[in-house]
Design a protein around this nucleic acid. Structure first.
Lengths: 149, 149
DNA sequence: CTTAATGCAAAAACTTTGCAGTAGA
DNA sequence: TCTACTGCAAAGTTTTTGCATTAAG
């Protein structure tokens, strides 16, 4: 369980496992991912309004340091946080109409990444790929709208 | 020439071609790319200190609307602007040590993008791929440092 | 002339931090 | 106890905007 991993990392760093941190972690892990700080904070506040914005901010920073969260920025400029599940890497399809973000995994991409890196004598640690466009739902809606005219 | 394209778009929109806009455009096009607003502004200010920060801001926004510039955010969180040369699409290798950004083009990537899109019934408009790691120079420097120890 | 663009300064929107009080280890 | 953590408020940053003035069409 992720919570245990968190506790281990906390004690290894001689830090403290507080109820605020655990609450934030749980909400963050349960979340849909791709939320910005304000969104995460508002969920936390719903369950415990006593927890301050800066605690959420600092906890997410801590989780990032622990490799349990990643800060991402998509083209809309929003800084969002996403939980990192151990191991599996995924990329994103971003719908420019409704803003929905779909995750996908692709092995070929991983291979391609290595080929490109080799070409430039780059030592890759990780990559990030985002495909922007219109999702099936929005495309359908657009079709329907078109027919009504 | 890009300047002509700019002038056409300006007049099509019944906007005005000012010397400020042209100066900013020229500096931006000549630039190395991947600069943030403050960096672009400081270059502009060097040549004409009368031009204000907001004019640079608004011009870059205009260029983005025109499809002549793109706002990009890498993992360091910086918002940077990059000139879009007509047609050719490229992606980025980002060195986590020195911060250098190398551009590359890859056809396979374009094909892969379409395959993935099809799988999710996504209608792709564009993509973005970034490879993070250590560039050849930094890797070499690290090697040398290691040997000295 | 008419209307968009500029430059300044100020507002807004985020992020980050200092510090006194609180609570884990 | 001892030291890290929290919450608040305040300070930074960066991005946007209102408005009187200027200049392009």
């Amino acid at each position: 369980m992720e919570t245990n991993r968190f506790r281990t990392l906390i004690s290894e760093g001689r830090l403290k496992a507080t109820k605020q941190r655990e609450k934030i972690l749980n909400i963050f892990l349960k979340s849909s991912g791709h939320q910005n700080l304000a969104q995460i904070y508002s969920q936390v506040a719903k369950e415990n309004p006593k927890i301050g914005y800066s605690t959420v901010y600092r906890t997410l920073k801590l989780l990032t340091r622990f490799g349990m969260a990643a800060q991402r920025k998509f083209v809309d400029g929003e800084t969002r946080y996403e939980p990192i599940a151990g191991g599996s890497h995924h990329d994103h399809l971003v719908c420019l109409d409704c803003g929905n973000i779909i995750e996908f995994e692709n092995e070929t991409l991983e291979i391609l990444q290595n080929n490109i890196a080799q070409q430039y004598r780059f030592k890759i640690s990780h990559h990030r790929m985002e495909l922007y466009g219109r999702c099936a739902d929005c495309e359908l809606k657009k079709e329907i709208r078109r027919r009504k005219r």
